[in-house]
Protein backbone atom coordinates (compact mmCIF):
# COMPACT_ATOMS: atom_id res chain seq x y z
CA UNK A 1 0.00 0.00 0.00
CA UNK A 2 1.43 3.32 -1.03
CA UNK A 3 1.57 6.17 1.50
CA UNK A 4 -0.85 8.12 -0.75
CA UNK A 5 -3.46 5.38 -0.57
CA UNK A 6 -3.00 5.19 3.20
CA UNK A 7 -3.65 8.91 3.42
CA UNK A 8 -6.84 8.46 1.43
CA UNK A 9 -8.08 5.55 3.56
CA UNK A 10 -7.02 6.45 7.09
CA UNK A 11 -9.11 9.58 7.73
CA UNK A 12 -12.50 8.06 6.75
CA UNK A 13 -11.66 4.87 8.70
CA UNK A 14 -10.80 6.98 11.74
CA UNK A 15 -14.14 8.80 11.43
CA UNK A 16 -15.93 5.44 11.17
CA UNK A 17 -14.16 4.16 14.29
CA UNK A 18 -15.12 7.32 16.19
CA UNK A 19 -18.76 7.08 15.14
CA UNK A 20 -19.02 3.41 16.08
CA UNK A 21 -17.39 4.12 19.44
CA UNK A 22 -19.82 6.98 20.10
CA UNK A 23 -22.79 4.80 19.10
CA UNK A 24 -21.63 1.98 21.39
CA UNK A 25 -21.08 4.42 24.27
CA UNK A 26 -24.50 6.04 23.81
CA UNK A 27 -26.37 2.73 23.64
CA UNK A 28 -24.55 1.42 26.72
CA UNK A 29 -24.69 4.58 28.86
CA UNK A 30 -28.29 5.51 28.02
CA UNK A 31 -29.34 1.83 28.24
CA UNK A 32 -31.17 2.01 24.89
CA UNK A 33 -33.10 -1.24 24.35
CA UNK A 34 -31.92 -3.42 21.43
CA UNK A 35 -35.35 -3.34 19.74
CA UNK A 36 -34.98 0.47 19.37
CA UNK A 37 -31.27 0.81 18.56
CA UNK A 38 -29.02 -2.23 18.84
CA UNK A 39 -25.40 -1.72 19.83
CA UNK A 40 -22.67 -2.05 17.18
CA UNK A 41 -21.55 -5.22 18.93
CA UNK A 42 -24.98 -6.76 18.59
CA UNK A 43 -25.20 -5.73 14.93
CA UNK A 44 -21.79 -7.29 14.29
CA UNK A 45 -22.92 -10.40 16.11
CA UNK A 46 -26.09 -10.58 13.99
CA UNK A 47 -24.05 -10.13 10.81
CA UNK A 48 -22.07 -13.22 11.75
CA UNK A 49 -24.99 -15.26 13.07
CA UNK A 50 -27.29 -14.56 10.08
CA UNK A 51 -24.48 -14.61 7.53
CA UNK A 52 -25.96 -17.32 5.29
CA UNK A 53 -29.30 -15.54 4.95
CA UNK A 54 -27.81 -12.06 4.62
CA UNK A 55 -25.08 -13.05 2.17
CA UNK A 56 -27.63 -14.68 -0.14
CA UNK A 57 -29.80 -11.55 -0.03
CA UNK A 58 -26.80 -9.27 -0.55
CA UNK A 59 -25.88 -11.33 -3.60
CA UNK A 60 -29.38 -10.88 -5.04
CA UNK A 61 -29.48 -7.12 -4.43
CA UNK A 62 -25.95 -6.59 -5.75
CA UNK A 63 -26.79 -8.67 -8.81
CA UNK A 64 -29.80 -6.49 -9.59
CA UNK A 65 -27.82 -3.29 -8.96
CA UNK A 66 -24.86 -4.33 -11.14
CA UNK A 67 -27.04 -5.51 -14.01
CA UNK A 68 -29.05 -2.29 -13.79
CA UNK A 69 -25.81 -0.30 -13.82
CA UNK A 70 -24.63 -2.15 -16.92
CA UNK A 71 -27.93 -1.47 -18.69
CA UNK A 72 -27.86 2.20 -17.64
CA UNK A 73 -24.26 2.62 -18.88
CA UNK A 74 -24.85 1.04 -22.27
CA UNK A 75 -28.16 2.80 -22.89
CA UNK A 76 -26.95 6.10 -21.37
CA UNK A 77 -23.78 6.26 -23.45
CA UNK A 78 -25.61 5.37 -26.68
CA UNK A 79 -28.28 7.98 -25.99
CA UNK A 80 -25.62 10.59 -25.19
CA UNK A 81 -23.78 9.82 -28.44
CA UNK A 82 -27.05 10.22 -30.34
CA UNK A 83 -27.68 13.55 -28.55
CA UNK A 84 -24.18 14.75 -29.36
CA UNK A 85 -24.67 14.04 -33.06
CA UNK A 86 -27.34 16.66 -33.48
CA UNK A 87 -28.92 19.47 -31.50
CA UNK A 88 -32.27 18.46 -32.99
CA UNK A 89 -32.15 14.97 -31.57
CA UNK A 90 -31.08 16.37 -28.23
CA UNK A 91 -33.80 19.05 -28.16
CA UNK A 92 -36.47 16.51 -29.14
CA UNK A 93 -35.60 13.75 -26.69
CA UNK A 94 -33.86 15.38 -23.73
CA UNK A 95 -37.16 16.38 -22.08
CA UNK A 96 -38.14 12.70 -22.00
CA UNK A 97 -34.89 11.77 -20.34
CA UNK A 98 -35.71 14.41 -17.71
CA UNK A 99 -39.24 13.07 -17.42
CA UNK A 100 -37.85 9.61 -16.70
CA UNK A 101 -35.61 11.14 -14.07
CA UNK A 102 -38.26 13.11 -12.19
CA UNK A 103 -40.87 10.34 -12.15
CA UNK A 104 -40.54 8.62 -8.75
CA UNK A 105 -39.51 5.01 -9.24
CA UNK A 106 -41.90 3.84 -6.48
CA UNK A 107 -44.75 5.18 -8.61
CA UNK A 108 -43.86 3.31 -11.78
CA UNK A 109 -42.32 0.17 -10.27
CA UNK A 110 -45.72 -1.54 -9.67
CA UNK A 111 -46.58 -1.02 -13.34
CA UNK A 112 -43.27 -2.39 -14.56
CA UNK A 113 -43.68 -5.38 -12.27
CA UNK A 114 -47.14 -6.03 -13.72
CA UNK A 115 -45.98 -5.61 -17.31
CA UNK A 116 -42.79 -7.63 -17.12
CA UNK A 117 -43.41 -11.28 -16.26
CA UNK A 118 -39.94 -12.05 -14.92
CA UNK A 119 -39.60 -10.25 -11.58
CA UNK A 120 -35.82 -10.19 -11.76
CA UNK A 121 -35.93 -8.45 -15.13
CA UNK A 122 -38.53 -6.00 -13.79
CA UNK A 123 -36.26 -5.14 -10.84
CA UNK A 124 -33.28 -4.60 -13.11
CA UNK A 125 -35.35 -2.35 -15.38
CA UNK A 126 -36.58 -0.20 -12.49
CA UNK A 127 -33.11 0.22 -11.03
CA UNK A 128 -31.69 0.98 -14.48
CA UNK A 129 -34.24 3.78 -14.98
CA UNK A 130 -33.05 5.35 -11.72
CA UNK A 131 -29.37 5.12 -12.67
CA UNK A 132 -29.79 6.21 -16.29
CA UNK A 133 -30.10 9.97 -16.11
CA UNK A 134 -26.72 10.98 -14.65
CA UNK A 135 -25.03 8.84 -17.31
CA UNK A 136 -26.96 10.54 -20.11
CA UNK A 137 -26.61 14.06 -18.70
CA UNK A 138 -22.89 13.87 -17.89
CA UNK A 139 -21.83 12.02 -21.02
CA UNK A 140 -23.77 14.42 -23.26
CA UNK A 141 -22.13 17.39 -21.56
CA UNK A 142 -18.73 15.73 -21.95
CA UNK A 143 -19.19 14.93 -25.63
CA UNK A 144 -20.00 18.59 -26.20
CA UNK A 145 -17.08 19.92 -24.14
CA UNK A 146 -14.42 19.46 -26.78
CA UNK A 147 -11.58 22.00 -26.99
CA UNK A 148 -12.51 24.17 -30.02
CA UNK A 149 -8.87 24.27 -31.11
CA UNK A 150 -8.72 20.47 -31.25
CA UNK A 151 -12.01 20.44 -33.13
CA UNK A 152 -10.43 22.78 -35.71
CA UNK A 153 -7.38 20.54 -35.90
CA UNK A 154 -9.59 17.54 -36.70
CA UNK A 155 -11.52 19.51 -39.31
CA UNK A 156 -8.29 20.75 -40.87
CA UNK A 157 -7.14 17.17 -41.26
CA UNK A 158 -10.48 16.12 -42.71
CA UNK A 159 -11.32 13.72 -39.92
CA UNK A 160 -14.44 11.65 -40.52
CA UNK A 161 -17.39 11.83 -38.12
CA UNK A 162 -16.33 8.48 -36.72
CA UNK A 163 -12.71 9.58 -36.18
CA UNK A 164 -13.89 12.77 -34.49
CA UNK A 165 -16.18 10.76 -32.22
CA UNK A 166 -13.72 8.05 -31.22
CA UNK A 167 -10.49 10.05 -31.10
CA UNK A 168 -11.74 13.40 -29.89
CA UNK A 169 -15.24 13.51 -28.42
CA UNK A 170 -15.11 10.27 -26.44
CA UNK A 171 -11.72 10.95 -24.80
CA UNK A 172 -12.87 14.51 -23.98
CA UNK A 173 -16.05 13.09 -22.43
CA UNK A 174 -14.32 10.52 -20.20
CA UNK A 175 -13.91 12.74 -17.11
CA UNK A 176 -17.59 13.71 -17.30
CA UNK A 177 -18.66 10.11 -17.93
CA UNK A 178 -16.83 8.96 -14.81
CA UNK A 179 -18.55 11.68 -12.79
CA UNK A 180 -21.85 10.26 -14.01
CA UNK A 181 -20.73 6.71 -13.29
CA UNK A 182 -20.00 7.52 -9.65
CA UNK A 183 -23.47 8.93 -9.15
CA UNK A 184 -25.04 6.09 -11.12
CA UNK A 185 -23.50 3.33 -8.96
CA UNK A 186 -25.21 4.69 -5.86
CA UNK A 187 -28.48 5.22 -7.70
CA UNK A 188 -28.45 1.70 -9.14
CA UNK A 189 -28.19 0.30 -5.62
CA UNK A 190 -30.93 2.58 -4.31
CA UNK A 191 -33.07 1.69 -7.31
CA UNK A 192 -32.56 -2.02 -6.68
CA UNK A 193 -33.57 -1.71 -3.02
CA UNK A 194 -36.62 0.46 -3.76
CA UNK A 195 -37.80 -1.86 -6.54
CA UNK A 196 -37.41 -4.87 -4.23
CA UNK A 197 -39.51 -3.11 -1.61
CA UNK A 198 -42.27 -2.57 -4.13
CA UNK A 199 -42.05 -6.09 -5.58
CA UNK A 200 -41.82 -7.68 -2.12
CA UNK A 201 -40.17 -10.78 -3.54
CA UNK A 202 -39.54 -13.38 -0.86
CA UNK A 203 -38.23 -16.95 -0.83
CA UNK A 204 -35.41 -17.77 -3.24
CA UNK A 205 -35.27 -14.29 -4.73
CA UNK A 206 -35.30 -12.35 -1.46
CA UNK A 207 -32.95 -9.37 -1.54
CA UNK A 208 -31.81 -7.15 1.31
CA UNK A 209 -34.92 -5.00 1.01
CA UNK A 210 -37.08 -8.03 1.76
CA UNK A 211 -34.94 -8.85 4.82
CA UNK A 212 -35.42 -5.29 6.07
CA UNK A 213 -39.17 -5.53 5.47
CA UNK A 214 -39.44 -8.86 7.31
CA UNK A 215 -37.12 -7.82 10.14
CA UNK A 216 -39.30 -4.72 10.63
CA UNK A 217 -42.48 -6.76 10.83
CA UNK A 218 -40.86 -9.24 13.23
CA UNK A 219 -39.29 -6.39 15.25
CA UNK A 220 -35.91 -8.04 14.64
CA UNK A 221 -34.16 -4.67 14.77
CA UNK A 222 -30.58 -6.05 14.97
CA UNK A 223 -31.11 -7.90 11.69
CA UNK A 224 -32.65 -4.78 10.17
CA UNK A 225 -29.53 -2.85 11.14
CA UNK A 226 -27.29 -5.60 9.83
CA UNK A 227 -29.03 -5.45 6.45
CA UNK A 228 -28.69 -1.66 6.42
CA UNK A 229 -24.99 -1.91 7.18
CA UNK A 230 -24.58 -4.34 4.28
CA UNK A 231 -26.39 -2.00 1.86
CA UNK A 232 -24.25 0.92 2.98
CA UNK A 233 -21.07 -1.14 2.68
CA UNK A 234 -22.09 -2.34 -0.79
CA UNK A 235 -22.66 1.28 -1.83
CA UNK A 236 -19.24 2.34 -0.58
CA UNK A 237 -17.55 -0.56 -2.35
CA UNK A 238 -19.38 0.14 -5.64
CA UNK A 239 -18.47 3.83 -5.41
CA UNK A 240 -14.82 2.95 -4.72
CA UNK A 241 -14.74 0.64 -7.74
CA UNK A 242 -16.09 3.47 -9.91
CA UNK A 243 -13.43 5.80 -8.49
CA UNK A 244 -10.74 3.21 -9.16
CA UNK A 245 -11.87 2.89 -12.78
CA UNK A 246 -11.82 6.67 -13.15
CA UNK A 247 -8.32 6.79 -11.72
CA UNK A 248 -7.09 4.06 -14.06
CA UNK A 249 -8.51 5.85 -17.08
CA UNK A 250 -7.58 9.43 -16.22
CA UNK A 251 -4.48 9.27 -14.02
CA UNK A 252 -2.07 10.27 -16.76
CA UNK A 253 -3.80 13.34 -18.00
CA UNK A 254 -6.85 14.68 -16.25
CA UNK A 255 -6.50 17.30 -13.51
CA UNK A 256 -8.97 15.45 -11.27
CA UNK A 257 -6.70 12.41 -10.95
CA UNK A 258 -3.22 13.94 -11.05
CA UNK A 259 -1.05 13.61 -7.95
CA UNK A 260 -0.50 16.84 -6.03
CA UNK A 261 2.72 18.61 -6.94
Amino acid sequence: MTPRLAWRLLPPLAVAALLVAAWQAWVTLAAVPAYIVPSPRLVAHTLVADRALLAASLGITLGVALQALAVALVVGVLVAIAFAQSRWIEASFYPYAVLLQVTPIVAIAPLVIIWVKDTHVALVLCAAVVALFPVIANTTLGLRSVDPGLRDLFRLNRATRWQTLTRLAIPSALPYFFGGLRVATGLALIGAVVAEFVAGTGGQGAGLAYQILMAGIQLNVPRLFAALVLIAAAGVVLFSCASLLAWLALRHWHESELPPR
Binding site: G149, L150, L153, F154, N157, A159, Q163, R167, H252, H254
Partner: peptide, 24 residues
Protein backbone atom coordinates in the same frame (compact mmCIF):
# COMPACT_ATOMS: atom_id res chain seq x y z
CA UNK B 1 -1.59 24.84 -38.84
CA UNK B 2 0.22 25.89 -35.70
CA UNK B 3 -2.36 27.41 -33.37
CA UNK B 4 -1.62 30.33 -31.07
CA UNK B 5 -1.93 27.87 -28.13
CA UNK B 6 -0.28 24.41 -28.29
CA UNK B 7 -3.66 22.58 -28.53
CA UNK B 8 -2.36 19.09 -27.76
CA UNK B 9 -4.63 16.23 -26.78
CA UNK B 10 -3.91 15.78 -23.06
CA UNK B 11 -4.93 12.11 -23.14
CA UNK B 12 -2.32 11.17 -25.75
CA UNK B 13 1.45 10.96 -25.43
CA UNK B 14 3.55 13.46 -27.38
CA UNK B 15 4.30 11.05 -30.24
CA UNK B 16 0.62 10.10 -30.54
CA UNK B 17 -0.25 13.79 -30.76
CA UNK B 18 2.27 14.31 -33.54
CA UNK B 19 1.07 11.19 -35.41
CA UNK B 20 -2.51 12.44 -35.48
CA UNK B 21 -2.60 14.25 -38.86
CA UNK B 22 -1.12 11.21 -40.59
CA UNK B 23 -3.42 8.74 -38.85
CA UNK B 24 -6.49 10.83 -39.64
Amino acid sequence: YVFQAPTLMPWARVAANVRLPLEL
